[in-house]
């Protein structure tokens, strides 16, 4: 994932051609607002999270005010308006996972990562967040890391998953 412009060394929110593509789409539709969620997700995919500058960039790309973007961005829980680690762990805390040991999994994750919910590991790899039902109720307890769902979690399974992700990143 390329987030730094190689020539300027600057952190980029979104590649220029993607911005241009959104700008063209916005010009092409009578209601550019429909692109807000797509654009915020694109910035987040590229940059990891949506900083203030990302809101401003999105607003400017779609011809809206930053406030108009912020009203949407802050509604959705899967748009991160604060810095997160390179991988966000969403642990389901809804009813099916609760019945199948979700609270113990939460405890395990907190222990293994050494962080609480809403926090990021010191190495910047993982952020731990609770989430409502992931639609993996048959595979409870479940979590989603990035956009991948992991079910039927056990201590061993969690160890393997976290280890593999750390290896991928390195």
């Amino acid at each position: 994932m390329e987030t730094v412009n190689q020539t300027t060394g600057k952190d980029v929110l979104l590649p220029d051609d993607t911005i241009e593509a959104f700008r063209a789409k916005a010009a092409d539709t009578p209601h550019p607002r429909e692109l807000i969620v797509d654009l915020l997700r694109a910035i987040q995919d590229h940059h990891g999270w949506v900083p203030d500058a990302g809101i401003e960039l999105a607003a400017q790309t779609l011809g809206l005010s930053p406030l108009q973007l912020e009203e949407i961005a802050t509604f959705y829980d899967k748009i991160y308006r604060q810095p997160v680690g390179r991988k966000v762990i969403h642990l389901c805390d809804s009813i099916c996972c609760w019945t199948t040991g979700g609270e113990q999994v939460a405890e395990l994750l907190r222990d293994k990562l050494g962080i609480g919910f809403g926090e990021t590991t010191p190495d910047g790899v993982f952020t731990l967040l609770p989430t409502c039902c992931l639609g993996a109720c048959g595979d409870a307890p479940a979590m989603m890391i990035g956009l991948t769902t992991y079910g039927r979690l056990t201590a061993e399974k969690i160890d393997t998953i976290l280890r593999e992700i750390r290896q991928q990143i390195d």
Partner: peptide
């Protein structure tokens, strides 16, 4: 349309707003 979370978007009129890009 790929959404970005929140149960309320399952409500049909909230979903229409979600697709339109309003709250």
């Amino acid at each position: 349309h790929r959404s970005a979370g929140r149960y309320i978007l399952g409500e049909e009129t909230a979903q229409l707003n979600g697709i339109e890009g309003v709250r």
